[in-house]
Design a protein around this nucleic acid. Sequence first.
DNA 1: GTCTATAGTCGGATAGAC
DNA 2: GTCTATCCGACTATAGAC
Lengths: 235, 235
Amino acid sequence: MNTPVSTSPDRTPRTNARSLQTREALLGAALEVFGRDGFHAASTRAIAEAAGVNQALIAYHFGSKEGLYLAVFEAITQTMNELIGPTHARIEADIDSLDGASPAGRRACLEYLDELIGGAIAMFSQPQALGWTRMVMREQQDPSDAFEIFYGGIYSEMLQSFTRLVAKLTGQSPDDESSRIQALNVMGQLMGFMVARATAMRHLGWQQVGASELSAVRREIRAGLYQRFGEEVPA
Amino acid sequence: MNTPVSTSPDRTPRTNARSLQTREALLGAALEVFGRDGFHAASTRAIAEAAGVNQALIAYHFGSKEGLYLAVFEAITQTMNELIGPTHARIEADIDSLDGASPAGRRACLEYLDELIGGAIAMFSQPQALGWTRMVMREQQDPSDAFEIFYGGIYSEMLQSFTRLVAKLTGQSPDDESSRIQALNVMGQLMGFMVARATAMRHLGWQQVGASELSAVRREIRAGLYQRFGEEVPA
DNA sequence: GTCTATAGTCGGATAGAC
DNA sequence: GTCTATCCGACTATAGAC
């Protein structure tokens, strides 16, 4: 699990439509089964069955069970880039110009924090979000090569943006441990609802943690930030 | 996994010292192995080996692999009761008398919130915390009977206390969804560091998420709460 | 109470036909 | 590219000796 493995052997000429279809089906099924059962407990037979393809094709297309696992993380990272990349780039380009001392600058910081939360919610509102969350969460506990794929994507840059925005608001340096902890605390509030799903559903009487529920969470996080950093919440 | 199973068959007269020793060793090893590998991937062989006992003794003492799994959750819940129960009871008994409109009452609410966070940190600072977190986290995603054991303990009562304290501070009803979300957000900030371990360690350059690191997190959560709810942070 | 031994099942990977 | 068939290792649970 921790020795590097080529993610896609690429014995396959991607021109073949059937081949692409098989790969996509396997990636989708792998997300679901790996997310549900974890790497070890997930069986290639179960994945193949869910994908509606032959079990031997996993080895053919992805080299091994692990190759498929890593390929799923590459797909996750790619989607995250597509969903959050543009918003993140726009915000990142503007942070330096913000004045953390003026009310207008502070409101801009708060709006950007809220936008980043919104980007994360866009991610969590995808139909695959449940599988993503589960797979990433497992990697958080026992990081393998897959965590590097994930963390090496836009995720770590997003945390940097959170940190810089929080630092503007507190007047601290973004290099301070304090700023970094506070940045994680902003994201942590949202992630808690994905990660402690069962608790959230019980405590709130929810039947699911979907887009509308996460929007309610976003409103609370947003209100809390405005209240904390002393600006009036805009209508 | 979802059909009720007796947790301890109790064929064993607990008078026998050796038997108790075996049970404890199995519970400790099970925590570690179930936490690391998850229920399915964990093998009774690995658990027995880690415990230094014979594999067949799992069936003898706990009926089955699942019986052992449930017994671990009972142990977790019991420890949580012992560590947090007294603090929680003291706070719960006092909440009603607090005045959310007066500065003194608000400071008391904030201190109580901080104390509950401290209780959670006491829990997370135990040597078994890593295993606990992992097992509970998995249950959050796919609740089995084990989640009921956990949620039926002091945990849900703690969330109620959080909710009531937050409601006092905001002036809302503790029954409002808003209050409940905010309560989860307070806990979520701390839990994020246990659950997104790898991210926290990377973003902060930490080598571990231990007692001292969690204390730093507690300080930030506390400061954030005071700042948000408009009281001066006491020295 | 604890042990050895094993029955019965299921896992990942691969060889080779098409 | 896809399939069938199979090797071989690992698993849970249990029977039965001590």
